[in-house]
């Protein structure tokens, strides 16, 4: 019997969920790109997975099994918001999920290049990214701490993301990886 099979269901869930949480979060984010909404869906997915962990077949990969729950939780969450409802219909969600799965090797590669590109970002811009992505600060608070307007801070964040996208694309092309 493997060590994984010896674990009680709760411990097995924690082990599996911890090792796949980032992947599940990114999957949800592709379907519902706002981080707070995606976090909410992630929590709801975690609850559903916890309740159904007894049904999981450990001989099969965990991620695709978890994605099915994440997909349905996103569908459910989208019903609560008219805005998401207009953006995401079921056909589009299916298409995104399917394309994301096809792009997985490229996305893995891009994440590697993201690290390199981040290291090239000037300190003040990286500090802003830290405030936004790591500290979960709102744009209002970042704007205030930097003495800028909210509008200007939104724009500055948009520009840094765009620079990162260009940088990643440049590295992909320079190293002969086709996007």
């Amino acid at each position: 019997m493997s060590s994984e099979e010896k674990l009680d269901p709760r411990s097995r869930f924690i082990q599996l969920f911890m090792s796949h949480e980032k992947q599940i979060y990114r999957y949800i984010l592709s379907l519902m790109p706002h981080s707070q909404d995606a976090q909410d869906v992630l929590q709801e997915t975690a609850i559903a997975l916890y309740n159904k962990i007894g049904d999981y077949d450990p001989t099969r990969p965990f991620a695709p099994w978890a994605f099915r729950f994440a997909y349905h939780m996103t569908l459910k969450h989208r019903e609560k918001s008219s805005r998401w409802h207009r953006f995401l219909d079921e056909d589009l969600m299916k298409e995104i999920a399917s394309r994301q799965s096809m792009l997985t090797p490229e996305l893995d590669q891009r994440r590697e290049y993201l690290k390199e590109c981040l290291a090239e970002v000037p300190q003040d811009k990286r500090s802003m990214l830290t405030d936004y992505y790591f500290e979960d600060e709102t744009v209002d608070v970042i704007a205030d701490s930097q003495g800028k307007t909210v509008e200007a801070t939104y724009k500055a964040l948009q520009r840094v993301r765009k620079t990162l996208m260009h940088c990643i694309q440049g590295k992909m092309q320079a190293r002969g990886v086709t996007a």
Partner: peptide, 28 residues
């Protein structure tokens, strides 16, 4: 559609990027 997936994946990865944890004003 592919561009959208790449962009959102980068956005999600930034939330999980350890490099951002050691940069900037961590003492705050």
């Amino acid at each position: 559609l592919d561009d959208y997936i790449r962009y959102v994946d980068m956005h999600g990865s930034l939330y999980q990027e350890p490099l951002l944890a050691v940069a900037g004003k961590m003492d705050n």
